[in-house]
Simulated scan of single mutants.
Amino acid sequence: MYLLKSARFQKAIFLFIVVAPAFAAYVLFTLYPNALSIYYSFLDWDGIGAKTFIGWDNYIRLFEDPFILRALQHNLILLVTVIPITLTISLVLADLLVNRAFAENSFYKVLYFFPNVLSLVVIALVWSFIYDGTFGLLNGLLRLFGLGGEHNWLGSKSTALLSMIPLYVWCYVGFYVVIFMNAMQGIPKSLYESAILDGITHMQRFTKITLPLLSGVIRVGTIFLMLSVIKGFEYMFIMTKGGPGGSTDVISLYMFNLAFGGLNLGQHIYGYASTIGMMIFVLLVGLKLVVDKFFAKDSIEY
């Protein structure tokens, strides 16, 4: 009876009741599927029929598959373009809105965040119309300014992947503008006032005060953008199906097609697709470690 009335026991029961549902969901929907993926990666399995254990054959196949390297190259192009462009535009817009203190800042937040509430299908269809080779908005604008305007943007190997970059940037910028604005508003104004008294320029305030104090937020934003670029394939799937000629085939789309019959005349290669999933996991962990090298681990105090 004393045990039931003790504060420590009651606290433990309360924490268990609060944490148990979330932990159970994490185990059921995260840990368990990941453990199954590791197991499936050692199988020759179509996702339905009998399973055949083949050891490391799927992992050996990774290094012999030419489509893996091609897909990773496409992901690399997106990584080195989408992430710096998105972060740069987001930081500049957030700094302008916070330091100018426009009365319409709340409206701008909603406006920039708007793409994040739209359906992926709607966004893909809108941008498909923009890039349409015959009636597209982009070609129409080019014709308006006498710059041609007959190019099939999504139907050409030379422009299909590059055409996806503005789409990604447009989708992600608004979210990070809101994040960076909120972070900047938490920086004490006295720091900027002292800097102004010292006579430094706005650019110097941005580079020597704002950016260092936002390094933790920028680090997290970089990691989440990497996750989105590497794991995301929805826009390619809807707009190009990985074409033309595999020019927009990214690693996650290739994995999806293998697992669910998008390739090989409907044949499912679920075991090998799980192996690619393990490779993506290792790749993301490696990229996260690389990002940590570029950002200070210790938070900057002010």
Rank of each mutant, 00 (worst) to 15 (best):
M1W: 04
Y2F: 05
L3Q: 14
F23V: 07
Y26H: 03
F29G: 06
T30H: 06
T30D: 11
L31N: 07
Y32C: 01
S37A: 07
S41G: 01
D44W: 10
D44R: 15
D44F: 13
I48K: 15
I48F: 15
K51C: 02
F53V: 09
I54F: 07
Y59G: 04
Y59P: 01
I60E: 14
R61K: 12
F63L: 10
E64Y: 10
D65C: 02
D65S: 01
F67H: 09
L69S: 12
N75F: 05
L76N: 02
L78E: 04
L79F: 12
V80D: 01
V82L: 07
I83C: 00
P84K: 14
I85E: 03
T86M: 03
I89A: 02
I89P: 00
L93P: 00
L96E: 06
N99E: 14
F102Q: 05
E104C: 11
E104S: 10
E104A: 13
F107T: 09
Y108K: 10
L111R: 10
Y112T: 00
P115T: 12
L118T: 08
L120K: 03
W127N: 06
I130Q: 06
Y131G: 06
G133H: 06
T134S: 15
F135N: 15
F135E: 14
L137H: 10
L138S: 11
L138N: 11
N139T: 07
L142T: 09
F145Q: 02
L147G: 13
G148W: 14
G148A: 12
E150H: 13
K157S: 09
S158R: 01
P166C: 13
L167P: 00
Y168S: 05
V169D: 04
V173N: 00
F175C: 10
V177S: 02
V178T: 03
M181H: 07
A183F: 10
Q185L: 05
Q185G: 15
I187D: 07
P188A: 12
L191Q: 04
S194K: 09
S194T: 14
S194Q: 14
I196Y: 03
L197E: 06
L197V: 11
L197S: 12
H202K: 12
Q204A: 13
F206I: 04
K208L: 10
T210K: 10
P212S: 13
L214R: 07
L214P: 07
V217Y: 00
I218R: 00
T222F: 13
I223Y: 11
V229H: 00
E234A: 07
Y235C: 00
F237C: 03
I238E: 02
G242E: 01
G242A: 08
P244W: 08
S247F: 04
V250N: 00
I251L: 14
S252W: 02
M255I: 05
F256Q: 05
F260I: 13
G266M: 11
G266L: 06
H268Q: 09
H268D: 03
Y270I: 08
Y270P: 02
S274V: 00
S274Q: 05
S274M: 11
T275E: 00
I276E: 10
G277S: 12
M279E: 03
F281S: 15
V282N: 09
V285K: 10
V285E: 05
G286P: 05
L287V: 05
V290E: 04
V291G: 09
K293N: 03
K293L: 01
F294W: 11
F294Q: 04
E301Y: 15
E301C: 05
Y302H: 15
